[in-house]
């Protein structure tokens, strides 16, 4: 029996080994390489491991005021886009989960932004919100609202990026939450209806608790993706005006390709990795606390 189990185990390893080799080559090796690089002075100009830097690259980031600014901007960005996308996405998913006409048309329209490349989205919205030639400002002024300097005023620029991100990424929330809603068992809802529960009570005490695992996955995935947001800022504002939209992924990009400093960029990437993991763990713990009780 023991021999048979050993044979099975060996066969399993044989089947899984090609996948493990590919994963090691494309995931583990780059991760390990960048971790090692973060402790050296390895630049594109001198790509050598001959100067050991210890924790200098990490400490340098902590001393840089613009690193802390990027850190702050990123946290604000994530704190705004994830809850807002969840609220909007959950609302639309609830509407779509009901028996309504033209459901397929709604699906098609709502998933369109998600399949567009962020670069295309950035360029489209850059023109729509163009402060002087854009249709949005034209309409706002026609309706009697004032002129909004969407990308030229530090008070508006981050909000504009947040709104564009919500426009594009809310489809992701809708699809995941809708998939969860359609797979819920019908019985609890029927019982609640017989017991006289209203729509709000059903939502708060039946739908949402039952959806908790799906909501957890959706929120965690969005947090991870939101921390990596880069394209919109790159295309629309380049981190400006000033440093008002300078999110950390763009900061890392500049350190890599303008500063040519792969070690410094790797160190910041690992800091971002640790931060994201910490937030994901805390969020996961908080969301599933109720269930564990």
């Amino acid at each position: 029996m023991k021999k048979l189990s050993k044979l099975h185990s060996r066969t399993a390893w044989r089947f899984i080994s090609p996948t493990l080799i590919v994963l090691a080559a494309v995931v583990a090796f780059p991760l390990l390489f960048s971790f090692v690089v973060s402790f050296f002075r390895y630049t594109f100009i001198t790509p050598k491991f001959d100067v050991f830097a210890g924790f200098d690259n990490y400490l340098f980031s902590f001393k840089d005021q613009y690193f802390w600014n990027s850190f702050k901007v990123t946290l604000i960005f994530v704190a705004l886009v994830v809850p807002l996308e969840f609220l909007v996405g959950y609302g639309i998913a609830l509407l779509l989960s009901r028996d309504i006409k033209f459901k397929t048309v709604f699906y098609f329209i709502l998933t369109m932004p998600m399949v567009m490349s962020p670069v295309a989205v950035g360029l489209i919205w850059k023109m729509l919100l163009h402060p002087d030639l854009g249709i949005v400002n034209y309409l706002l002024q026609k309706m009697g609202f004032g002129y909004v300097n969407w990308f030229g005023d530090p008070r508006w620029a981050l909000l504009a990026i947040v709104l564009i991100d919500i426009w594009q990424q809310v489809s992701f929330m809708i699809l995941i939450l809708l998939a969860g809603l359609t797979s819920l068992s019908k019985e609890p809802f029927e019982s609640a209806k017989i017991d006289g529960a209203g729509p709000l009570q059903t939502l708060l005490y039946i739908t949402t608790p039952m959806m908790l695992p799906v909501i957890t996955v959706a929120l965690l995935m969005r947090v991870i993706i939101a921390f990596k947001t880069y394209d919109l800022v790159y295309i629309i504002t380049s981190g400006g005006p000033g440093v008002s939209t300078d999110i950390i992924s763009y900061y890392i990009y500049r350190t890599t390709f303008m500063g040519l400093d792969l070690s410094q960029a790797s160190a910041i990437s690992f800091l971002l990795f640790v931060l994201t993991m910490a937030i994901v763990v805390v969020l996961f713990h908080q969301i599933t606390k109720e269930k564990r009780r």
């Binding site: 000033g242 500049r254 303008m258 040519l260």
Partner: peptide, 20 residues
């Protein structure tokens, strides 16, 4: 480091223009 030089100057000029 011309590209990095442009980046540093560009960031500071943008901060001035944004009155930050």
């Amino acid at each position: 480091f011309s590209a990095q030089m442009v980046e540093s100057v560009g960031r500071e000029l943008s901060l001035i223009m944004a009155e930050n």
